[in-house]
Design a protein around this nucleic acid. Structure first.
Lengths: 259, 259
DNA sequence: TGTACATCAGTGAACGCGCGTTCACTGATGTAC
DNA sequence: TGTACATCAGTGAACGCGCGTTCACTGATGTAC
């Protein structure tokens, strides 16, 4: 259940509260020997996810080893199976979490873009900020970034037909928030943020709407390529100034090329 | 010994000759019961590499399982250790092979670009052809492509300082073939081909030399991002027409953005 | 031309680790009466 | 308010597979004499 996982992630991001959304405090958390070493953990599902995230953060998806997660949580080798069907289910939850963190970073970066006056300038600056945040996140959180894009055998492909091409031509010139036609990527997926930035460029008149189709994915590919070459590829040996230079060049080319 | 591996790869590409470069035919291959099931294989190192390549082709780097390679070659579980130090050594040879195939594809594509008259047009068309070949190779040979970029724990990072930034400014405006300053990527590495294409753009006057620095890596990132998102990323579900559309858009943006 | 011997290139059995997963179990908790 | 019982959430031992790697061995080959 991806929606449940997503909710957990948000909880986690808000500093590990134990209550379900809306309820004050879970009865269990307030139990007499809460905090002591009790047989019933109380919130193991959440705790497992947190430790899995830490492992992924430090070592990428392969580091999410069920036994390690459980050991860190202080439970036995099989306790996780009361909460997750198997390792893939736990890893999927971590992936969802990682995607959300990347999206958060991008959104925060967008919000902090100062308003440069014209709408066109603003839209341009926002695309650049989103792309920069994408690369920055990959460099700052390599483990989570890798996990966000770890192929998940269980989950079907994220983006399908409807997502890109149809949208590009049919809705591209609107500023309307993404619709169901945007496909199977969640509303808060990093790609959606890029799509909205490009929508904005069209609406601001920077990008002609007949050149929009497929551009969102192209922009995504550009920053994703930077991230993967910097992280796992042959460019990982560049120092951060060099990486930034390459990133700037790519942004420049895009900015120039959109006109 | 990477150079030995590279030579092997070339041999393999030339349809599995058994002789060493220059020598007519290896004495062993001409032995009485050559071809029969003999105790001494005669050319096991090469045969192992070939089977390893096939496994990588079908399933990527993780599919290069030593036991499988040996079983396919019809030898015992440990025979490979006479020829490769360990699994990593064999995998490194496959990686070298895969890089060479990618480079071949790109070179072949470059050669087939028709001369469109002006040098500027030609240089532009060649960059596009190289990028397109990169993506095409990834889609046509996903296993080899993944293997070409599989992080190799044994081999140090490919590209270092000298490779990108120094080169960009010092040699960028020359058409001279890449020098030692190009770093640790071999002469025939796919990245080198892109570098030469960009050199060409500068020489043809399409790209101002003061905007060259870092552009080679940026272009690489762009096509690499396409390849990885199409292969293992969320865009893998796009059909090939949609993939081509996205690729075209990215090329357009670059072509436009370089001016 | 034949024989002894070093060397090379295989064999095959086994070791050992990592790790997901299963299974019969037991302690704790909430609820019906 | 206490007791019986179902249910939930843990335990811990073990299974079993995949797979790299080691080791003592043996068959084949080339070379010195």
């Amino acid at each position: 259940m991806p929606s449940t996982d997503a909710r957990e992630c948000v909880q986690y991001a808000r500093c590990c509260h134990h209550e379900k959304a809306g309820q004050p405090v879970n009865a269990r958390s307030a139990r007499p020997h809460a905090g002591a070493d009790r047989y019933h953990h109380g919130n193991l599902r959440q705790t497992l996810l947190e430790h899995a995230v830490e492992l992924a953060r430090a070592g990428g998806p392969d580091a999410v080893v069920l036994r390690d997660v459980q050991r860190r949580a202080g439970v036995s080798n099989s306790a996780a199976y009361r909460h997750y069907a198997d390792r893939d289910a736990l890893l999927a939850a971590v992936t969802t979490y990682a995607e959300a963190r990347l999206a958060d970073t991008m959104m925060a970066s967008l919000r902090s873009v100062p308003d440069p006056g014209s709408r066109a300038r603003r839209a341009t600056a926002r695309l650049r900020a989103a792309g920069q945040a994408y690369v920055d996140f990959a460099l700052a959180e390599p483990g989570l970034f890798r996990t966000a894009f770890a192929p998940d055998p269980a989950r079907p492909d994220h983006v399908t037909h409807a997502s890109l091409v149809q949208r590009g031509s049919d809705l591209g010139s609107l500023t309307a928030p993404p619709t169901a036609a945007d496909g199977l990527v969640g509303q808060d997926h990093p790609f959606q943020i890029l799509i909205r930035c490009i929508d904005d460029l069209v609406a601001a008149g920077v990008l002609a709407s007949d050149r929009r189709e497929g551009l969102d994915a192209a922009a995504w590919a550009a920053v994703h390529g930077l991230a993967t070459l910097f992280l796992d590829g042959p460019l990982r040996a560049l120092d951060s100034a060099q990486k930034q230079l390459v990133t700037d060049r790519l942004h420049d080319v895009f900015q120039q090329g959109l006109k």
